[in-house]
């Protein structure tokens, strides 16, 4: 039985999808911080990324060395078709489990 993605993995995977061909460490970190309005450490970004890559939902390649990065290359992540498929699944599940929920305060208790 395949497990679901963890929540951080899900968020990161979405960020990679959103960033299209400019998804690498810094942009992903910024994106998820903006989306979640929380501090993400580098570790918190890369550990789920690594897992996602192992599971085959993203793949990565190295860019050309950039001077503003101290001559270091970027590792650019792109979402794979398996990743898209997984996102679709999660989206469906999410829709189901969130169905009928509104942020109207009266309905919370």
């Amino acid at each position: 039985m395949k497990k679901y993605l963890s929540r951080p993995e899900e968020i990161i995977l979405l960020a990679v999808w959103r960033l299209k061909d400019n998804a690498y460490g810094v942009t992903i970190k910024k994106k998820v911080e903006k989306m979640t309005e929380k501090y993400w450490s580098i570790g918190a970004v890369y550990v789920p990324l690594e897992r996602l890559e192992k599971k085959g939902f993203v793949r990565s390649c190295l860019s050309k060395p950039k001077s503003e990065r101290g001559g270091r290359r970027k590792r650019l992540f792109t979402i794979t078709s398996a990743g898209i498929y997984e996102l679709n699944k999660i989206h469906k599940v999410n829709e189901v489990i969130w169905q009928g929920y509104s942020t109207d305060k009266k309905e919370t208790w």
């Binding site: 580098i42 990324l49 503003e68 101290g70 970027k74 590792r75």
Partner: peptide
């Protein structure tokens, strides 16, 4: 940082860090 990070991501992470710090 490099001690803890798996080899595959070492270069990218230090690059990211430098980029962010400069920003």
């Amino acid at each position: 940082l490099q001690i803890v990070v798996s080899k595959r991501y070492r270069e990218a992470i230090s690059g990211d860090l430098i980029e962010m710090v400069r920003g």
